[in-house]
Design a protein around this nucleic acid. Sequence first.
RNA 1: AACCCCGUGGUGUAACGGUAGCACAACAGAUUUUGGUUCUGUUUGUCAAGGUUCGAAUCCUUGCGGGGUUGCCA
Length: 558
Amino acid sequence: MSDQDNPSTDFIRQIIQDDLKSGKHNEIVTRFPPEPNGYLHIGHAKSICLNFGIAQEFGGRCHLRFDDTNPAKEDTEYVDSIIEDVRWLGFDWGDNLFYASDYFEQLYDWAVTLIETGKAYVDDQNAEEISKGRGNLQTPGTNSPYRDRPAEESLKLFKEMREGKYGDGEKVLRAKIDMAHPNMNFRDPVLYRIAHAHHHRTADKWCIYPMYDYAHGQSDALEHITHSLCTLEFEHHRPLYEWFVENIDVPATPRQIEFARLNLTYTVMSKRKLLQLVSENHVSGWNDPRMPTLSGMRRRGYPAEGIRNFCHHIGITKYQSTHDVGVLENEVKQVLNRDALRFMAVLDPIKVIVTNYPEDQVEEMDAVKNPENPDLGTRKVPFCRELYIERDDFMEDAPKKFFRLKPGGEVRFRCAYWLKCEEVIKDDTGEIQELHCTYDPDTRGGENPPDGRKVKGTIHWVSARHAVDAEVRVYDRLFKKENPDAAEGSFLDHLNPNSIEVKTAKLEPALADVEIGETVQFERLGYFCVDIDSTEDTKVFNRTVPLRDSWAKIAGKS
RNA sequence: AACCCCGUGGUGUAACGGUAGCACAACAGAUUUUGGUUCUGUUUGUCAAGGUUCGAAUCCUUGCGGGGUUGCCA
């Protein structure tokens, strides 16, 4: 199943189709414009899939542009991670890699023109005065005392601002629009501020930096972007975006269209909060497998295809919805079910002795690598007298619907034999030590015996003599609340204290060959990805997502 | 009570004036050497009231509800 089966027909794509049909545009150009001040998350994936997806579907192109107009918050570390993440997601911008800082000179020249034509002025007020002068939602603002200073004076001051004559905050350049406008963005927005800060690309060349509103539309125009797609919070900025495009002699007229940003249950998405999780060590880093970042999901074992399919299926609207994280997990599971190789691993082992199995014998059992793709063939799994099974797969006082191992009961050991539990060995405290079982030689490979006996359950196992130890990190949701943002108190109050559980597991030996970054299925348990923390001696696995567990549901009910 | 945007099952999303469909979730069953997968079926919806129309989720009006906007962040 692929994305292409059902082409999207959201309102943005409809606008684009109309623009193509009417001849307004012959080629579609979009852009993904992150600010390099943090790591990309699943919300960005929605925007990436939208912008790059549209370029692919309509035979256009999509630029990657770093919106690097605020040196105080930005860093090359973020530039590098963003490039890596977009590539990993599966998109390519060819030669179209740009930076807003590439346009600083041109933006400066246009600002000069705005001053010359009386559409901008240098304001000497400080931030507080400007804020006060702007009025509020009910009351109009008042003009700055510097609003009507002669253009030549503003020109001189603006030049001096650039030359570094003033300190941070001493002066700003403002557009001269309307201090009583109902849209606050029109109350003489700031175009340039002074910031004596080191920029990760332009170094110390500049000490004045353009604001988002002033830089973004012009950058779009310079790149001949046809459709500038952004999230809903920029709706009020669109008229200003258009004002600049109209009042400046730009080479193209891009159109801004807004869509709803992605919200997911059981997580937070704001960069500020994600940064806080990292800096206060609630997680191990931006790429912690519990983070909604692309690097976290990659490390968790989410395939890029699953994320792309998710973004495709949630669609694009203006309705501020919250998607169930289960939908994402479902897309991930679909891809993994198709692709992941199957292995057996025991996370919470209990020993089984096969009392009637020869002490020194070892058999290599054949096990299918992936039932969804039988062409992949089989692997060998060693079977001997001592095994491990999952503690959950045995119950002394089992309910009727418990199809696994119980005293006197018989189950199939996957791809091996049918075993019957003869004796339960306990220690002084009553804790189960080991199980003594007998096997039926007529069931080799797990086949049905000739006498027509039936068995309800099949459980996984690992040979105790051949097992490889590994660390397994079992992850759960990072937050306990569906919406940690809306819940009472700080979002940090709702962190799930059990979002990670570390176990030492017993693996079948073939698992030793799985490489870092690969995701496999531990049969009956879930999907697990080899983590970068793995060493020569010990592999580390992250649980990507558990398999559906309908027994847990039945057990939970009774 | 300024201005702007948005209201379709539990959660999302389609239907472009003409049979309210799909996915996830839930429930029931079938298949199964993973209580996985797959397959079949069931339950649940157009925020409200008016209006236009042969016909309204769709167009209009009003109300109600949700969100956004008062950075020298993006």
